[in-house]
Amino acid sequence: MSLNKELKHEFDAAPWRGKTKRYDIVKEGTIALAIVAILALSLSLLMGSPDETPLTFKGWAVSNSDNFYATTVQELAGTSGTATYGAPYNKASDGLNAGPLWPQKWMGVTHPIDSVNDFVISPLSTQVMSTEIASAVATWKTASAQQKQDWATAYDDAITKAEGKISAVPAGAYGPVPALAQGLTDMAKGGALDAALLSQGGFFQTDNTKQILFFGDGSYLDDAGTAANLQGGTWGMMNETGRYPGQAWLWLYSFWYQIPPFNNEESKPIGANADLYIMLIMGVMSAGLVFIPFIPGVKSLPMRIPIHRGIWRQYYEENGIKRRRK
């Protein structure tokens, strides 16, 4: 540090010995609190706050029965988003990576989810089942793993060929899968699935992971998100339902999802692993915010761009201090 810089540093650090003025910190705080209270009160009375009713499995099964049914078959076939997700739910995939970094895989399965049993068989088993459904559950439980896979995969493929229209699926060797899917669809239509997925046969439960993941496997939640303009590709992370401001402070995080290669899942390696890369970028940028005082170029911006001349205009004018060129 040069002598000049050292003196300036000492001056900036030392208690101010120049001109002062009276300052009532308690009065200032009280007035500020009153202003904010009035602002919050006014906005609350005039605008209220967002509260869109949550989606339910009943709503999904009633409004789009075929999609719910097809999603149930995917859970049984192991082709749904949850079934193929990887950690922390299962070992179906290695998850995302950034070069040699595989943090998702490294942390392992901490919230195990078996989409077949947790989403379909267990909820059905909590109900008083019809003879047909009870027989289908029993058949499924006693079949070999290979047999179950063959039935569910054949039916899943057939539904895909029929473009999701269940009534157009031709007859085939699907075993108990159609009965299981119909049983769960009927259960959802009756409103019993929401609670069964949450409780999993227990009493106290505050973890909605299974409900949320099952929701996300179908199109119901996704369609609702699109309709509410909440998709990530349209700055959805910082939006709120209705005409309310959302988490605008997440604009920088949302920003990365709007530009290539992050907005293209086909682009490898970054686009295909965009979630991880963006989290890493934001981690580095957050650290950068904290350590701005040490970042060359950034730390000197306030001296180079004279916004401070406006902030301390009165001081500069009173003391006749001209701007020093850096």
Partner: peptide, 26 residues
């Protein structure tokens, strides 16, 4: 506990899971 929280939790999980943070911040 409304639709927005359903949506945000489903969408946000991927970022946290990709970092391995989802293991303890679900």
């Amino acid at each position: 506990t409304n639709f927005d929280s359903q949506w945000i939790s489903f969408e946000a999980k991927d970022g946290f899971n990709s970092m391995g943070v989802g293991a303890f911040f679900n």
